[in-house]
Design a binder for these strands. Structure first.
Length: 420
RNA sequence: GGAGAGGUGUCUGAGUGGUUGAAAGAGCCAGUCUCGAAAACUGGAAUAGUCGCAAGGCUAUCGAGGGUUCGAAUCCCUCCCUCUCCGCCA
């Protein structure tokens, strides 16, 4: 959510951002409602001031033993009017809030303007793609090796909920530990979080109201199964104010993630490419506004480092305005090369939200410079999402005789070097 | 799940209808004193909205949301959370 005052004072910049992100422009309606709102506040508060003044007088009169009936009678009409105004104000503010939620965050100037994924810029590529000859997609390999059981997963839970069996299960556990250890070395505090959250938290990171269909919901208890650790970890500091010197704060959290993926079918969903439940290590930062773009670069570097250590070829995309999402000001996607499918798979998405989330969640810091409280900037990025990494490892490291070599850095964790 | 107690500012903690945005103490910031510090003394300090060029004014906020009243931290209702005891349990 943006700041009303910011919209009022930077109307044109906000409008430009809306166009670039191809969102609906409700700015005129917002400004009109804001005017109404302020008129109502003006009248209402004037009357409240009067009420407070007269009430104090009534108290004094009663103390002095005088009769205050006439004044009280007069206040009754004021009271009614105040109630009316408050009701009108409430309805205006409800409409206003609704529209405010439709205003996207303003893209950073360094972000390329564009409409579709084709306008994203590939800004960096690393590693050598294995030659494609004779390489199989991971689902063929895992089924031959019997290490991922999609069928039994369907029986037990449903499509998109596989079992990892034996060495695949150990490989996953190894990756989680490897990712968390790396994050720890790079200054992130490890956090083990709830994997369900309440309504306030779901609202805080913006999953509701607009993305409610993306989540599994335990309706009986009004709990939402998290689609990413970003939700509990960012909400960790909801409604808190930091000292400036505490910033930046960095967390790494491993959680299972649950996504309904309603309406997404087709060939993209084969094997491990798209699941309803998957594991992910998420990196989250709370930082001083002056450093947030440097922090975005280092966040990206932290995620890239993992891919380099694993020896997986990848590329970095700088997302264009039209494809970057509603809440971000700037976003990089990291895509790993899956040689068996001859395809790039997104494994991390590193974003700066500036104050967009912090405002919604009321996360501030006390500025030394101004003496005031200001909103922090929040960032997050995957570090990394597991299934597609597993897919890439299997496809890129497959041997002609159908085995899979485990990357060197993982072997201390897996305690085996080959999956066979 | 049953029974009880409670949620007040950074913290401890007073306050049960009328100058209470809120006592007191601690902590914090600034100043005086000091070579410096401590102690002592003096002063300052909430957040948001709104009006104003500004100084400053006004409004709201005592877990959250409603209600009663001329007036609510104080009374009523709903919800949330914490603690204690009992039961159940990985």
């Amino acid at each position: 959510m943006l700041d009303l005052k910011f919209i009022r004072e930077n109307t044109e910049a906000v409008r430009k951002g809306i166009q670039q992100k191809r969102a609906d422009d409700n700015i005129d309606a917002i400004l009109a409602l804001d005017n109404q709102r302020r008129t109502l506040i003006g009248e209402g508060e004037g009357l409240k001031a009067k009420r407070n003044e007269v009430s104090a007088k009534v108290g004094q009169m009663k103390k002095a033993g005088e009769n205050a009936d006439a004044v009280i009678e007069e206040m009754n009409t004021v009271k009614t009017r105040i109630q009316q105004l408050d009701e009108e104000l409430k309805s205006v503010e409800e409409k206003l809030d609704e529209l405010m939620l439709t205003v996207p965050n303003v893209p950073h100037p360094s972000v390329p303007v564009g409409a579709t994924p084709d306008d994203n810029q590939s800004i960096f590529e690393w590693g050598e793609k294995p030659s494609a000859a004779g390489l199989k997609p991971h689902w063929d390999i895992t089924s031959a090796l019997g290490i991922i059981d999609f069928d039994r997963g369907s029986k037990v839970a449903g499509a998109g909920f596989p079992f990892y069996v034996g060495k695949a299960a150990i490989l996953q556990r190894a990756l989680i530990n490897f990712f968390l250890d790396q994050a720890g070395e790079r200054g992130y505090t490890e956090l083990q979080a709830p994997i369900v959250v309440n309504k306030d938290s779901a609202r805080g990171t913006g999953q509701i109201p607009d993305k409610e269909d993306m989540m599994y919901v335990a309706t009986k208890d009004e709990l939402y199964m998290i689609p990413t650790a970003e939700v509990p970890v960012t909400n960790f500091h909801r409604k808190e104010t930091f000292e400036e010197k505490e910033l930046p704060i960095r967390y790494a959290g491993y959680t299972p993630c649950f996504r309904r993926e309603a309406g997404s079918y087709g060939k993209d969903v084969r094997g491990l490419n798209r699941l309803h439940q998957f594991d992910k290590v998420e990196l989250v930062k709370f930082v001083h506004p002056s450093t947030s773009y440097d922090e975005l670069e280092s966040l990206r570097a932290d995620a890239e480092n993992l891919l380099q250590l694993l020896g997986l070829p990848y590329r970095v995309l700088l997302m264009c305005t039209g494809d970057m999402g509603f809440t971000q000001t700037k976003k990089y996607d990291l895509e790993v090369w899956a040689a068996g499918q001859q395809k790039w798979l997104e494994v991390s998405s590193c974003s700066n939200f500036e104050t967009f989330q912090a405002r919604r969640m009321n996360i501030k810091f006390k500025s030394k410079e101004t003496g005031k409280q200001e909103f922090v900037h929040t960032l997050n990025g995957s570090g990394l999402a597991l299934p597609r990494i597993v897919a890439a490892i299997i496809e890129n490291n497959q041997t002609p005789d159908g085995k899979v070599n485990v990357p060197k850095v993982l072997q201390p964790y897996t305690r085996f070097a080959v999956i066979e």
